[in-house]
């Protein structure tokens, strides 16, 4: 079963990326991804650039609407995600708890849709 772990930042957590704390944090990612890979469960993942780099595309019928900025106008913004293939939600949560973190970040664990015809 594949699970996506979505990492949510707030303006406060995003501001921590800069400076020594951010460097500390970033240096923890490589070992973490390696641990996922060694365990044979890593599928994919990416860290995202800040929300102000986003461009949002919407459709009103056939009419396109392109906007600057992220889709949701909320304090919490998606900062990155990774996907793992594990037997169950308990195991997914166990790994999610090991995710490198900054104070204030939240981690949403969501099962992927199972493509039809596959287990």
């Amino acid at each position: 079963m594949k699970y996506s772990i979505l990492i949510f930042d707030t303006p406060e957590t995003a501001s921590r990326f800069h400076g020594p704390e951010g460097a500390q944090y970033m240096s923890q990612w490589q070992p973490f991804i390696k641990a996922l890979t060694d365990a044979g469960i890593y599928v994919a993942g990416a860290g995202l650039q800040p929300p102000d780099t986003a461009t949002t595309l919407r459709f009103n019928g056939d009419k396109r609407l392109v906007q600057d900025g992220p889709y949701a106008d909320t304090k919490e913004q998606l900062g990155g995600f990774y996907m793992i293939d594990v037997p169950d939600l308990d195991t997914a949560l166990e790994w999610a708890a090991r995710t490198p973190r900054l104070p204030g970040q939240a981690f949403e664990v969501r099962p992927n849709l199972i493509p039809s015809g596959k287990q």
Binding site: Q24, S27, Q28, Q30, P31, F32, I33, K34, A35, L36, D38, A97, R98, P100, R101
Partner: peptide
Amino acid sequence: RERAIGLCEDAAMRTYLV
């Protein structure tokens, strides 16, 4: 140690190992 860091759940411990 890299493996220990990757498997670590406790943030303070992870910082210590890093």
